[in-house]
Design a binder for these strands. Sequence first.
DNA 1: ATGTGTTCCTGTCCGC
DNA 2: TGCGGACAGGAACACA
Length: 283
Amino acid sequence: MPELPEVETVRTGLVPVMEGQVIARADIRRPDLRWPLPDNMSDRLTGKRVKSLRRRSKYILVDLSSSETLIIHLGMSGRILISNEMTGSFHHSHPAPEKHDHVVLDMENGARVTFNDARRFGAMDLTLTAAVETHWLLKDIGPEPLGNAFNENYLAAQLMGRQMPMKSALLDQKIVSGLGNIYVCEALNRAGISPRRKAGNLTRKSISRLVPIIRNVLTEAIAAGGSSLRDFRQADGELGYFQHAFRAYDREGKPCKTLDCPGEIARIVQSGRSTYYCPRCQR
DNA sequence: ATGTGTTCCTGTCCGC
DNA sequence: TGCGGACAGGAACACA
């Protein structure tokens, strides 16, 4: 579930259970996700208070009282479940861990935060809070698409001279960070820009239209709680319904939703990933 | 420097 | 119901 709007939704869901709370117990159930988990991860989390939960691109940043920050990336299939102690039995307890529950954090308030990731493309690391921006995973990523640094001038400069298709350009986290396959398709459809268009060939006018469209798509998706695809494990945080607003993504063969456009959505493959677009109105 | 293809891993869905 | 192949929200890495 992992583009910017979904990650932001997860972050928002974690705030009430984690912020200001002490991590009472950290159960690291396997030593690695995409990469090895940090050394002594359990000890470095246990007893630490969560000062704040931030997001950078598709990363959740958990700032701890120890001056360290837990960096979390959900990869392709990562999700975070929140559970509370089951009452009614004499011993209050949580549901038994499920398959692919790799990291389980018990908060002092009784809430349990479980990181589940079947494919294990996700990642976690611990680093000094002061050094988060220079962490190897974060140091080269581009500006936040909802921030001021992402604007017409910036994007024009980034796209200038680029031969790659627009689809690839917007997926490139160095150009702008946080977009993924869904929201790139959606933004390009709304903007009437073909995903195959060479990035360097966009007109200035086209770029000036695209920037606010990207912002709007993301903002609307965040407001909808993100998009829920095949999995909707009801963690607080993944109740999204933006998938109902898709105009292109996963709509192959269906009518284009652009006003008065008689076209239908096509699916093509670009650098190994599905692209959905309307060949009629996206040029 | 740029752009593309491969790779990591597991689960699900679709056609036979 | 089983089996094989395609495909899945990401992105680092190797290579032209």
